[in-house]
Amino acid sequence: MRTKIAVILISVISVIYNIFFFVGNQKSFNRTETDKFIIYVNRYEDVRRYLPYRAVVRYLSDTDNVAEYYLAQYAIAPVILKNKGRANIVLGNFHGMIDLDVLSGKLKYADFMYVDFHNGVFLFSDGPLKWN
């Protein structure tokens, strides 16, 4: 009998808690944050078309936000995105204005080419970038 009463009590508590969890979960999520995540990942959709299937690309940004770097890697895989050292192709992720002259000095490419995706994302290369 004691066991049966215990199970009934657990049942009541569990139903109440799960209702609270469901409501709390709904409140804790921020729709804007979800949209931001998806929009951020989708920014790189066209980038993939300019990249070879296998490459190591340098990541460059005007912020130190590692989450953005990791997400960029997630978006452009299987191309590898490294965040230091030199590479023939550079993926730029910028939130502010960029000075291309300063950037070209930084990249030290002999023949400087770039594609602007008009959403803060750029591809820089020391050779021509082809649309695949």
Binding site: S11, V12, S14, V15, N18, I19, F21, F22, N25
Partner: peptide, 17 residues
């Protein structure tokens, strides 16, 4: 009955997440 209710609440929370 409580098991079924809890199952659907878990499912709803899962789908919501």
């Amino acid at each position: 009955i409580p098991l079924v209710i809890v199952f659907f609440l878990i499912l709803a929370t899962f789908v919501q997440t």
